[in-house]
């Protein structure tokens, strides 16, 4: 078992495998996204209350899901890197952080665009919005720490600790913000009170969620490949790779 993990997580093996996987993830992502967008933007009926402007949901909700999912991926792979010293886990954690921050930003930005026509304000201090904003801060902290430390190994381990502290804190932050919000203002318009989502809207939403996951897989592998090359630039296989591509 251990030998299997060792072999498959070696940077060299990963570099080759990811090179083969990326096109698959990429094309499947494109297919899912095109169908998801088609069903979401054209086939799905307009909402009885929000008319067509609810359609931003098909980007907003998957982005918000991804923002939390990627943080978990980052923290778990950071922990794996800390405990078992697997280089690849460090690489995945480091390359996930900027993508996660982008998804968080996307969720906030689409939320603001959606909020303006629906609630009449770009921003409200709603519990969910606030926790999402704090999540963005946590991501930016990890990214800043990662880039501040020059030695890559040390940087990965330090940001792994920070990400783990963040994971312990995220539920606390989430519930304290929720609690703070109910204290300051009662239940207002901010709650999406759709009792249950209709199947014609659920299917494109799920398609888009899968497309976003595949997009993340594609981009994280691309970033991780670059990161691996940079970290392993003194190893023989990278040197060979470089001389091969030069001689071609």
């Amino acid at each position: 078992m251990w030998a299997f993990i060792k072999k498959h997580s070696s940077p060299k093996y990963f570099y080759r495998l990811s090179g083969r996987l990326i096109p698959w993830f990429g094309w499947f992502c494109l297919a899912f996204m095109v169908t998801g967008l088609y069903y979401g933007l054209i086939e799905a009926p307009p909402d009885y209350q929000q008319k067509d402007s609810y359609r931003i949901m098909f980007v907003h909700v998957p982005a918000a899901w991804m923002s939390m999912f990627i943080y978990m991926v980052m923290a778990v792979s950071g922990a794996i890197g800390l405990i078992w010293r697997i280089k690849l886990a460090d690489v995945i954690a480091a390359s996930s952080a900027p993508i996660g921050a982008s998804f968080t930003f996307l969720a906030l930005a689409t939320g603001a665009l959606w909020g303006k026509p629906m609630w009449g304000a770009w921003w409200v201090w709603d519990a969910r919005l606030t926790s999402e904003l704090i999540l963005l801060f946590l991501y930016l902290g990890v990214i800043a720490l990662n880039s501040a430390i020059e030695d890559k190994r040390t940087a990965s381990r330090a940001s792994a600790i920070l990400a783990l502290v963040g994971v312990v804190n995220i539920p606390i932050i989430h519930y304290s913000v929720e609690w703070w919000n109910t204290l300051h203002q009662g239940a207002t318009i901010t709650k999406m009170s759709a009792p249950s989502i209709h199947i014609s809207m659920l299917i494109p939403l799920l398609l888009m969620a899968v497309a976003f996951k595949l997009y993340y897989a594609t981009v994280v592998l691309m970033r991780a490949r670059c990161e691996v090359l940079e970290r392993e630039r003194n190893s023989s296989w990278v040197q060979e790779l470089a001389s091969d591509s030069q001689s071609k």
């Binding site: 704090i134 801060f137 946590l138 902290g141 502290v165 606390i172 703070w180």
Partner: peptide
Amino acid sequence: LLSLLVLPLYIPVLIFAAG
């Protein structure tokens, strides 16, 4: 950098204490 790392983690304390 320290403030960037630490301040978000202080938020729950701020909420409960100021509340």
